[in-house]
Structures are given as C-alpha cells and as structure tokens.
Design a protein around this nucleic acid. Structure first.
Length: 232
DNA sequence: CCAGACGTTGTT
DNA sequence: GTCTGG
DNA sequence: CCAGACGTTGTT
DNA sequence: GTCTGG
C-alpha cells in the first residue's frame, strides 16, 4: 500500500503549507515537480531541525535501521504499520525520536486485471498538498564506516470504506493541525500520538484510473496523472 | 544468560 | 539498538 | 509499488 | 520463481 506517489505542488506553496522558510536553490531542487516517486528514490522529508524549527531534506524512501550491518537485501521498508510500531524494534526508536512529514499531493494504487496492472490515482478533489506521517533513521555505512544514508518510511493504517476495494491498507494522512504534535520531539509517549493514525474518513478523496505508463519508474511526467476517460 | 531476528505488501 | 526465543 | 533481469567460458 | 533497480 502506498508504493508510489506524487509531489507536483509548486515549491513556494509546499514551503508555505508546511511552515518552512521560502525555498532556496536547495529546496527548489528538492521540491521539483514529481509525478512518479518510487521506493529507493530520494523523497522530500520535513523534520524538526537541530535547534528547533522545521527543515526539508532529501532521504531515501525505504527505511534502513541504524543497526543494519549491511544494506538490507530484503524488500525495502517503504511502509510501517501504525498499529504495531511500538512492538517493532525497527520502528520503536524512530517513533519516539525521529518522526517526519512526507509531503505529497497524490498516490497510486493498482488493481490486477488478468495480466494487466491498472494504476489508480488518489488525491483530494482539489489536488491540494498534504503530508504522510513518516519515520526516518540514519545509517552509517558498513561497520559504521561508509557513507551516511538517511532514509524514511510511510505509516499505514486500515483502509477506509472508499479505498477498501483497492487495498486493505492506506497511508496515514495527517491533518495540518497535527503537524506540530507529530514533529514535537518532547512527545515520546505513543499513546499521545495514536489518534493521529485514524484513517481519513471515506469520501474525501477522489480515485481515478490513469495510464499504465506510471507503472514504469522512468516515466515521471504529467501524463502519469492524466485520468483515463471511459471509451463509452 | 547469549543468539538471532529485527518488515510490509501482495500473492500463493 | 531492542526484543524474542531458548 | 512495478519492470526487468536472471550467466559462464573463452576469445577478441 | 526470485532478486535488483528505480
């Protein structure tokens, strides 16, 4: 669930909606329009900066636990089940200390129709920006040597009635009023955060089939989100 | 105590 | 690092 | 998440 | 079928 998403909102608007400084050159690159963000790629992440305030940084999508000896060969941890975070050694630390916002304005889900993988694009009807609840971690190369890689994961929750036909999970979409709480490093008690994981109420999102060109990661352009019109 | 795992998704 | 299994 | 590769030996 | 790359 939630294995591809978009971030095509203009950079100045992203900065404004997420409470960041007006974007400099670095942020303009980080927030360059994206129509097909895929696992293992760099994604824009908003976190609490050292010394307070919010900052946006690029991170690999697919969390690598800080204690990993090698780069994991198994499927990347692109999602984390919000219900069980406190039971998982991999996520328990990050839930306490390294939470983040992952800005997005739409995501994709697939249905399999025979051999055909049909993508569906899911967003608010007005296409507005929002933020997934995310966790991140920092990994220091093999044996603590090598390069430092910061990586992140997107939380999931039970799908609401609207998304259930597509999948049984959906990403945790935070309300803007909850951004401060989610990023507050002083909050370490999971019980104070659990209510943020409630699924978005059904009916708020729009779901439409799009061209399967999005299936291919190399295709990263506005055609990915062009709604397929019925032929009838 | 030490050793070994540590994850999600979808598919079978 | 932290949890589970033995 | 989906797409695409998946291998060795010997010879040039 | 399974793994890697994006």
């Amino acid at each position: 669930m939630c294995g591809r998403f978009t971030l095509k909102t203009p950079a100045p608007m992203i900065a404004e909606l997420l409470g960041l400084e007006p974007p400099g050159p670095r942020q303009l690159e980080l927030f360059a329009p994206r129509y097909n963000i895929a696992p293992t790629q760099d994604v824009a992440v908003v976190r609490t900066a050292t010394g307070g305030g919010r900052e946006a940084v690029g991170m690999r999508w697919g969390l690598i636990p800080s204690w990993s000896k090698e780069l994991p060969k198994s499927a990347p941890l692109i999602n984390a089940r919000s219900e069980s975070l406190t039971e998982k050694p991999t996520f328990r630390g990050p839930l306490k200390r390294t939470r983040c916002l992952i800005p997005a304005d739409g995501f994709y889900e697939w249905t399999t129709e025979g051999k055909r993988k049909q993508p569906h694009y899911i967003r608010f009807p007005d296409g507005r920006l929002y933020a997934f609840a995310g966790l991140w971690d920092r990994w220091r190369g093999p044996g603590g040597a090598g390069p430092v890689i910061e990586s992140c994961t997107i939380l999931t929750t039970a799908a609401n009635a609207q998304l259930a036909p597509l999948h049984d999970r959906m990403p945790v979409i935070l309300a803007p009023g909850d951004y401060d709480l989610w990023l507050d490093g002083a909050v370490e008690n999971a019980d104070d955060l659990r209510h943020l994981f409630d699924p978005l109420p059904a009916g708020e999102l729009a779901i439409d089939p799009v061209d399967p060109r999005v299936n291919k990661v190399a295709n990263d352009d506005p055609q990915c989100v062009t709604v397929q019109r019925s032929l009838f």
